[in-house]
Amino acid sequence: MSKKAAFWIFISGTLVSLIILLALTFDFHQKVKALTHAENLSPQVLAGKWAWEKYNCNDCHTILGFGGYYGPDMTRAYWRIGESGIRYAVEKPEQAFANSFRKMPKKNLSPEEIDNLVAFLKWTSQIDTHDWPPQDRKFKLSSEAKRLVAGAGISVGAALFKDKGCFNCHALQGVGGTTGSSLDKIGSKLDKEAIARYIEDPSKVNPQAKMLKFDLSSEEIEALAKFLENQK
């Protein structure tokens, strides 16, 4: 190969790739508005993005999977822990993570900043990410959970308990989160109906409840309550 041929490999390789990138970048700008619901980018959402950057949240938490790996991903935090969960963690991290081996700093955000941050995370939760992240997929059982139900014969309630992210806050037999209470003995305290009522809308049963109202069908609630009733 001559040096001239090598030069043309260099030029053509670079240009082809560059043209692809620039053309697709143009197309990205045409489509990103719909994919991210840019019409919902209100001034409050933008103020929330400022707050997100001001407090350097992104160097502990990933968002869209980018950033620090020290805290959970925030893309779907609004689905996962809801507005009250976000508020609780930001306002009172010393309480929310009192039993956690990893802490979150208390940054003393103003009430307005917290509102904005919530609006921002609400907006991010509806970006079309092709169903990423897998741990926060909203409307389907993971393939792993389906296998558990079909193969090992565990109850649908147990599979749902795992799949709907209950472990994020609650623990069973020492496995799981510490934000909510441990559910090892829940069946000896509450019966199935009481559990179901609570899951359906926690704040209706207890106005002080930290737990959120999750988007669950009545069959799912029934299955979960049946599973939890047996934790004695």
Binding site: F10, I20, W132
Partner: peptide
């Protein structure tokens, strides 16, 4: 030539899940 050919459009491996087509 090969670094840039694979690398420039290879930026796409960061664009899978960020709200791009």
């Amino acid at each position: 030539g090969l670094f840039l050919f694979t690398g420039i459009a290879g930026i796409g491996h960061h664009y899978y899940w960020l709200g791009a087509p």
